[in-house]
Amino acid sequence: MPERPIRLFGDPVLKSASLPVGDIDEGVRGLVADLVDSVRIPGRAGVAAPQIGVGLRVFSYNVDGDVGYVINPELVEVRGEPAKIDEGCLSVPGQWHKTPRYPYARVRGRDLEGNEVELSGEGLMAQALQHECDHLDGIVYLDRLEKDERRVAMRQVRESDWF
Rank of each mutant, 00 (worst) to 15 (best):
N62A: 14
N62H: 15
N62K: 05
V63T: 08
V63C: 08
D64E: 15
D64V: 00
D64Y: 05
D64Q: 11
D64S: 15
D64C: 00
D64T: 00
G65E: 15
G65D: 08
D66W: 06
D66S: 04
V67Y: 04
G68T: 10
G68Q: 06
Y69E: 09
Y69F: 15
Y69S: 05
Y69G: 06
Y69W: 09
V70K: 00
V70F: 03
I71L: 14
I71P: 03
I71W: 07
I71D: 11
I71H: 09
N72E: 12
N72H: 12
N72C: 12
N72D: 11
N72R: 10
N72P: 09
P73Y: 13
P73M: 05
E74L: 12
E74V: 15
E74M: 05
E74W: 06
L75D: 04
L75S: 03
L75Q: 02
V76Y: 09
V76P: 02
E77S: 01
E77A: 10
E77G: 00
E77V: 00
V78N: 03
V78I: 15
V78G: 02
V78C: 00
R79K: 15
R79T: 02
R79Y: 01
G80K: 03
G80Q: 12
E81C: 01
E81G: 00
P82Q: 07
P82Y: 06
P82M: 03
A83V: 04
A83M: 05
K84Y: 06
K84M: 06
I85L: 09
I85A: 07
I85R: 04
I85N: 02
I85H: 01
D86E: 11
D86L: 13
D86M: 12
E87Q: 11
G88L: 12
G88M: 13
C89A: 11
C89E: 03
L90F: 08
L90A: 08
L90C: 07
L90I: 10
S91P: 08
S91G: 13
S91M: 11
V92L: 13
